[in-house]
Amino acid sequence: MRRFPASLVLLALLAPVPALANGMPQLAFNNPLTLDQVWWGAGIFVVFLLLAWKWGLPRVATVLEDRAAHIAADLDAARAAKATADAAAAEVTAAIAAARSEAQTAISAAVEAAKADEATRSAALNARLEAQLAQAEQQISAARAAALGALRQVAGETAATVVARLTGAPAPPGRIDQEVAAALAARGIVESHA
């Protein structure tokens, strides 16, 4: 619209140009082609309109509709998949928590069991060791008693021999025994009557 006056100015400027004397071909209505182009144009326009309306544009419309439907379906599928994934993630989290607490319980149970087992075993070991110790002590005291018994006999016989050599007469056996026992008791080695 703004260019219309400009074009008028231009036409005015061009007016003196000799070629313009022939006038504008657009206004040459004595040329039948000027109006004939309108009839041809009307026919072409109608054919163009009908082809675009009935054939060309519906082709575009169906593709656009298909795409819109496809996108909507994809979005729905994506939303459903997201819901599923969220549920699965929650499930996994819950499973992990359950597994963790289960493992914790199992570990503490195992530790308790191990402790109890250890305690029983060490008790048994202690008992066995004490029994062996007692047995050993018993054997030691028996051996000692045996050794001491032998010592008294040897001392009695030695004393009798010594007395017989010194005095030339055998010593009374009751006296020897009594003296040896008293001497041993005085040294604290064995009881008087053992």
């Binding site: 082609l33 004939d36 144009g41 072409i44 326009f45 675009a52 054939w55 060309g56 544009l57």
Partner: peptide, 24 residues
């Protein structure tokens, strides 16, 4: 009465229909 003008009209209509037909 066919001149350059109807020819270009037909070309314009044909090009549009070609874009719709071949393009789609």
């Amino acid at each position: 009465g066919f001149s350059q003008s109807p020819l270009m009209m037909a070309v314009a209509a044909g090009l549009t229909l070609l874009i719709l037909g071949v393009g789609m």
